[in-house]
């Protein structure tokens, strides 16, 4: 085990995979940084420091700094993937998928099926998502809701450095297109990471981060930590919560959720995207369908409101699901006897 930050888990996984497989290439805006400037290449790394040093190690042919052209970045990843390479493209902010949406939605997500299963498209599209920095409506969004709804894409949302390692390695080795969503507020979080250079975590396997028999809480990414804090607080009162970290939203680990709800009979889903047609409403519906007999209370969803992400500190913190809101939802499901 090595202690490292979430952002370093991203960087070292990419570096190890580039070392192992020469078909792995990286592309994105400022992934080298300083190109064409007096300071020169790598004068400054990408803004998340998730590609620092790759250019020096692997060279310009495999670490491609791109112009501001998201549509062409994802499109190029598609073409690279169809040509036997394993591109890892970075979109900087998840919000910028808007510019590249056709290439994600109509192209990389559809090749395998549309071409009769005769091709694979091993592209990874990484992006930083999420609120918490007062970066306002176009730099703060959680985009998994829309992407999870698109057939053909795998969608990954790691919450710990170890999960970054195992899931990103799996994403790079996977033969299908993977959207890899990194929460920008987690980049500085530290945790133990396995040293094994073949450590992978299969998609569709949730992680039980807290165990208890009274309530099931399901979440991902940044909000998972809020859920754990609530579970720890309630544990002191003798209330036990299963806290399930989904890790991937597509494929989704229904079994772990259903098994837990069969014991607890009470479900709270905590989701960073707006409430309509959301991950939370999807999971509540699945549980209502498949574990109806076990339910002791109506499943509760905790989402932000149906608005764009607001700027001011007071507004953004009112917007985001908080530990208080999660606790209130847990107490609500417990109030049903």
């Amino acid at each position: 085990m090595t202690k490292m930050m979430y952002r370093d888990a991203v960087l070292t996984t990419i570096a190890e995979e580039m070392e192992r497989d020469e078909n792995v290439v990286v592309l994105g805006e400022d992934v080298v940084g300083g190109m064409g400037t007096p300071g020169g290449p790598e004068a400054i790394g990408g803004i998340w420091s998730t590609s620092t040093g790759l250019f020096g190690k692997f060279g310009a042919a495999r670490v491609i700094d791109t112009p501001i052209s998201e549509s062409a970045i994802v499109g190029a990843a598609a073409g690279l993937a169809l040509s036997g390479k394993r591109p890892v493209a970075e979109l900087m902010f998840a919000d910028f998928i808007g510019v590249s949406l056709d290439q994600i939605w109509n192209q990389i997500g559809k090749f395998r099926y549309m071409f009769g299963g005769k091709t694979k498209c091993p592209a990874v599209i990484r992006m930083a998502y999420g609120a918490g920095y007062n970066a306002a409506a176009q730099h703060s969004q959680a985009v998994h809701q829309m992407l999870t709804g698109m057939p053909g894409l795998k969608v990954v949302m790691p919450s710990t450095p170890a999960d970054v390692k195992g899931l990103l390695r799996q994403a790079i080795r996977d033969d299908d297109p993977v959207i890899f969503l990194e929460h920008k507020a987690l980049y500085g979080v530290t945790g133990d990471v396995p040293d094994d250079k073949d450590f992978t975590i299969p998609f569709g396997h949730a992680r039980l981060s807290r165990a208890g028999e009274d309530v099931t809480i399901v979440s991902t990414g940044l909000l998972l930590g809020f859920c754990e804090a609530v579970a720890d607080k309630l544990a002191a009162e003798g209330i036990g919560c299963d806290v399930i970290d989904l890790r991937t939203t597509s494929p989704i680990d229904e079994e772990t959720i259903l098994d837990s709800v069969e014991v607890t009979g009470r479900l709270v889903v905590v989701d960073e995207a707006p409430p309509r047609c959301s991950l939370a409403s999807d999971i509540c519906a699945t549980v209502a369908n498949k574990a109806f007999a076990s339910l002791k209370a109506p499943p509760q969803a905790v989402n932000p409101p149906h608005t764009p992400v607001p700027f001011a500190r007071e507004l953004e913190s009112a917007y985001l699901p908080s530990a208080d809101k999660i606790e209130a939802a847990v107490r609500k499901v417990l109030s049903y006897r």
Binding site: G33, G36, T37, I47
Partner: peptide, 13 residues
């Protein structure tokens, strides 16, 4: 001459 940390001469072909 700059877009973020990248020089004009690199990014404009």
């Amino acid at each position: 001459h700059y877009s973020e940390h990248t020089g004009f001469e690199y990014a404009v072909g």
